[in-house]
Design a protein around this nucleic acid. Structure first.
Lengths: 346, 346
DNA sequence: CGCACTCCCTTAACCGGTTCAGAGAAGAGT
DNA sequence: ACTCTTCTCTGAACCGGTTAAGGGAGTGCG
């Protein structure tokens, strides 16, 4: 197995073999008019025989489309590994990108500032043809940057956060309301919510919706606590909620992701409380994890993979149609009852 | 906030403003000799004032280094989301890439064939400067491809699988042996292992090591079952292991990842078996998940993030030093006892 | 004074494509 | 027979950098 020194075959070789000019090969490979069928065939045959494919770098430099989509993620590494959401989202994005033989440029950043720098460098350097923006905050500085740059993006987040950018979102407010109503319908009057990072826009939306729903239902008790999405934080929050004496203790807890719900389940067990008899637990996202616990976790369930795919499709729309932005929601998470929710026994 | 039409500033503009030629700017930005300090300063000042940074695409085309590293992952999407290993590995890789302002090109592929095509296209199209190869199988076809192409890579896997490619690996055989010895030392004589995908090389290594360790210790019973790494598969495997009548039922089970161990824990609960009294469970990888269950999961623990970082560092070594390949292992996973392992009561 | 040697910097070719003005050839219309 | 189109295809400029070869100024030395 000797290492061949990589015989780079270029458009020039293909042109020579097909007996045409470089330009003709380019036209053929971009499916542009102006070539006879016969010539087209000869060119493709020559390319196939030589095993040639257009060099994306050169193609990009020459000013045509860029076949790369950027995604900068700003969360601590430790947390990411545990968040099934991201990988599933990425796989959904990928599934659509692959159809367009497009790749995903992934970058983990440590701060909003770094993300701003990365996005700008990517775009000005023609490293990406567009970007997916996630984890919006109120007054997000990316909105201004992106508009100034003219960078095609699709924002993942509610329009109230993404300020005019084309966006795709899940209706978290409605979902939270449904979650609270469901628990109330089971008979719960003291409900708590273990939320995600307070700085994140969608957390704020859920928080507001929870308050409103609790008010509308005139619940006897409604607590909310912000965390960083990590299992540890979820465990701490649960512990502090459940140590209260009975009249002040919630009988149901809604979590902002699966990991924290799993952690909550374990805290309940550790404290000798039965789930769902003593306390009901409701997870969010509904990854496979929810079916691996005992009892299984009821969850607000949605198709994260499909969500990623939809975001990617929308981005292609933005990139090609230039401005025919199609902001739209994806289906609202639906309640999937399992073993961790039941009427309160207390 | 009107959208500026993106004022692309090029090396030519910088050169003009600094009163030098394009070449001079290039020399300065690549820290090459042949320029006076004064000129260098002027150039950098001009670049800063214009907000210019070299265009990576052009730089790549011109034949210099490529600041992108490729990673193609071949596992079903659903599973990926749940495997904390990947995201943590990626974040480790990223942490090193970022230091070199290098990006990660990620691609989920559906088959080995597709991966071969992707890697070849990436390399020939100068899309990547090198690649990270994971999930090796016996007789892996990537070895031949990569050697033929001359693509700089670092393989994640034991040298027996990665055929001469520079590689970084964890000593799974030793770790499995330690796991079995630990359980045996606790008094377990009937031990099972719920392994990962049989096609994967490292699974085979662990399987062989388990057999050997079991033989050496003359265990009364040693079972192994292959799965696809998913929680569901882990649950099924556990269920079938634990339904056996007592003399044929294992008193300890080792899992190939965390997810399956979590699933196993839940199956034990569902079957009315106490952990660790009736059956001990040992997880693998030791993500945060292991501390979120009740009881907490004992695990073979290693630093996946650090592993990723080391792989990235090695890849840079391969790319720059051209052939000074440094195949080496990373620290062997160590046993971290928690609440799911104890002497058998049966 | 002339020559060799440095040191800085410029020039121009090149990387591998895309794009567009325009050249030839073939067919249509008159 | 001649002009006008239409259809194919070519040639050359260009994208934004890198790099090797070379030119001019300044210095050391015989």
């Amino acid at each position: 197995m000797t290492a061949t020194p990589t015989p780079r075959v270029t458009i020039r070789d293909v042109a020579a073999r097909a007996g045409v000019s470089k330009g003709a090969v380019s036209l053929a490979f971009n499916h542009k008019p102006g070539l006879s069928e016969a010539t087209r065939d000869r060119i493709f045959r020559a390319a196939r025989e030589l095993g040639w494919a257009p060099n994306l770098t050169a193609r990009t430099l020459a000013g045509s489309r860029v076949d790369v989509v950027g995604l900068a993620v700003c969360r601590p590494a430790r947390m990411l590994g545990l968040e099934p959401w991201y990988m599933e989202f990425v796989s959904g994005v990928e599934s659509v990108l692959a159809e367009h033989s497009c790749s995903l440029l992934l970058r983990l950043v440590r701060s909003m500032d770094e993300e701003l720098r990365v996005q700008e460098a990517w775009w000005r350097g023609r490293q990406v043809g567009g970007s997916i923006l996630v984890d919006f905050q109120a007054g997000d500085p990316r909105v201004g940057l992106v508009e100034g740059l003219g960078l095609p993006v699709v924002a993942v987040g509610h329009p109230s956060l993404t300020g005019g950018l084309p966006s795709v979102w899940t209706d978290d407010a409605t979902a939270v309301t449904e979650a609270v109503r469901y628990l109330a319908a089971l008979g719960h009057r003291r409900i708590a919510r273990v939320g995600g990072a307070a700085a994140l826009g969608h957390t704020a939306i859920r928080t507001a919706a929870f308050d409103e729903a609790a008010g509308a239902l005139e619940l006897a008790g409604a607590w909310q606590v912000a965390t960083d999405f990590s299992g540890d934080a979820g465990a701490r929050a649960t512990r502090s909620l459940l140590t209260a004496a009975v009249p002040d203790r919630p009988t149901a807890i809604v979590y902002d992701n699966d990991i924290m719900a799993v952690a909550g389940l374990s805290v309940a067990a550790e404290m000798g409380l039965r789930v769902p008899e003593d306390v009901s637990l409701l997870a969010w996202d509904d990854s496979q994890l929810c079916r691996l616990t005992h009892p299984t976790l009821s969850a607000m369930s949605h198709d994260v993979h499909g969500f990623g795919a939809e975001v990617a499709r929308t981005l292609f729309g933005v990139i090609t149609a230039e401005g025919t932005a199609g902001s739209h929601p994806v289906p609202t998470p639906v309640l999937t009852p399992r073993g961790s929710t039941a009427p309160p026994k207390v």
